[in-house]
C-alpha cells in the first residue's frame, strides 16, 4: 500500500548547518500493516512522516501510495487519501466551528467540495453513529463548538476525522505525546480499536517505546536518518523495552539518549 524507496532529505544544504535528515530510507508497507516508528530526537521520524504527507519534498526517492507515484503531488492533493493526526490536539480540528462542521469538512476529504450544504440531516445521523463509537458522549453535542472540548476529546475527534473516510494511509504523529497519561491511554486504546476495525494501513511515530511495542504488527527504529532496526510479527510480540535499548546500544555503540522514550 505504501512504498517509500531510497528517500533522502537534506536540510540547509551547502551551509554550516547542513543536516542529512533522511539518508536512503526504504520502507514497504502491505495493506493493513500497522508500523510503529521509534527513535531519539533528530532521528528523522517526523521528517519521514512529512515526506509521506507531502509537507517536505525529498531530494531524491519515490513515495508510492496504492501503486500511484505521489512524490510530486502537493500536500492538499495527497491528503485526499492520507489521514493524519498531529501531536498538538489543537492542530487537527477547527475550534470556532462546530463538531458537525468539522466532521463535514473531513467527510469532504476524498470528494470534490461543492456548493451544497456541508451539514445535512442525513449526514448528521451518520456523524452521530460515528461519534458513538468514541464513547465520549460527543454524539449529543453535534452543534457545540470544538473549542469547548478538552484536549483529549479534541484528539479523539481528530482521530475520527482522520479515519472515518477510510484513507489509504493513516499517519499518527506522536498523537498522544501532548496529553496527560489517562487521556493518552484513552487515545491509544481508541487508536488500537479504530485501526483494528477498519484495517487501515498505519504509520505511527512515537516517543514512547512501550506504546510502540503495544500497538501495531511491525516496529522500526530510526537513528541519524536511517532505519537501524526492524521487527515484524511474532518477533515484535516478544520484544521488551529493555531489548530495544540493548539493541540500540549494540548497533550504535552508545546509550539511547532520550529519557522520555523509557519513562513514557
Amino acid at each position: 500500500m505504501l512504498n517509500v524507496t531510497n528517500i533522502s532529505v537534506t536540510f540547509n544544504e551547502g551551509t554550516l548547518d547542513e543536516k542529512k535528515a533522511l539518508n536512503g530510507i526504504e520502507l514497504e508497507m502491505a495493506a493493513g500493516d500497522f508500523v510503529t516508528v521509534i527513535g531519539s530526537n533528530g532521528a528523522g521520524k517526523s521528517t519521514l512522516m512529512n515526506v509521506v504527507s507531502g509537507n517536505i519534498l525529498p531530494d531524491a526517492g519515490d513515495v508510492i501510495i496504492g501503486g500511484k507515484q505521489v512524490v510530486h503531488l502537493p500536500e492538499y492533493k495527497r491528503s485526499a487519501f492520507i489521514g493524519r493526526v498531529f501531536q498538538d490536539p489543537m492542530a487537527g480540528t477547527a475550534p470556532s466551528m462546530t463538531i458537525e462542521e468539522n466532521l463535514a469538512m473531513a467527510y469532504s476529504r476524498d470528494k470534490k467540495r461543492r456548493l451544497k450544504f456541508g451539514v445535512t440531516k442525513k449526514r448528521k445521523d451518520m456523524f452521530r453513529d460515528y461519534l458513538k463509537t468514541l464513547n465520549l458522549g460527543l454524539e449529543d453535542r453535534l452543534s457545540a463548538k470544538v473549542g469547548l472540548l478538552s484536549g483529549g476529546e479534541r484528539q479523539a475527534l481528530s482521530l475520527l476525522m482522520a479515519t472515518f473516510t477510510n484513507p489509504n494511509i493513516l499517519l499518527l504523529d506522536e498523537h498522544t505525546a501532548a496529553l496527560d497519561p489517562s487521556r493518552a491511554e484513552l487515545i491509544t486504546s481508541l487508536t488500537e480499536k479504530v485501526v483494528r476495525e477498519s484495517g487501515l494501513t498505519t504509520l505511527m511515530v512515537t516517543h514512547n517505546m512501550q506504546q510502540a511495542l503495544d500497538l501495531g504488527n511491525r516496529l522500526i527504529m530510526m537513528d541519524k536518518g536511517q532505519i537501524i532496526f526492524e521487527a515484524n510479527g511474532e518477533e515484535k510480540e516478544r520484544l521488551t523495552v529493555k531489548d530495544l535499548l540493548q539493541e540500540f546500544q549494540r548497533i550504535r555503540g552508545e546509550q539511547f539518549e532520550d529519557d522520555r522514550a523509557v519513562l513514557g
Partner: peptide, 23 residues
Amino acid sequence: KTEVGLALRAIGDNKRMIRSLSA
C-alpha cells in the same frame, strides 16, 4: 455553510487542518 464555505472558514480558523483535509 456549503462544503466550499466550510473549507473557507477553516482557513481562518485552522489552516493546517483544512490542508490536511485535502482543501
